[in-house]
Design a protein around this nucleic acid. Sequence first.
DNA 1: GGTGTGACCAGCT
DNA 2: AAGCTGGCCACAC
Length: 114
Amino acid sequence: MTDLDFFDRVYEVVRLIPPGRVTSYGAIAKFIGSPQASRFVGYAMNGSHTQSEFVPAHRVVNRNGMLTGKHHFGGPEIMKQLLESEGAIIENDQILNFKELFWDPTRELMQGYL
DNA sequence: GGTGTGACCAGCT
DNA sequence: AAGCTGGCCACAC
């Protein structure tokens, strides 16, 4: 994962998100070494569909647990339905149990690398 | 092949 | 306390 580009690292981390769990753009950006590049993590998701392997971009939301990128899934309700099918509780494009479902790569993955 | 721009976040005013 | 701004990087046109 060290040789990969910024985008590729994003895709790697997103694929590691366990089903039913979610994380934030900022958490991913921080994990791959560019804490202030969270903005481009979102853009990486935009190109995620070009990847040959599926990237569960629906498990990535903003810091507030809000489904900011729902409109990029081919339909405004797709992302919501995907998350709900995995156990998330969503109301008004907001994950209510975001705090419980939040999966921090720097906490979960860094432990293995220490 | 250069340039705009994009699904964010935190720090200042 | 709330609003604006800067910053970061690679894709698509």
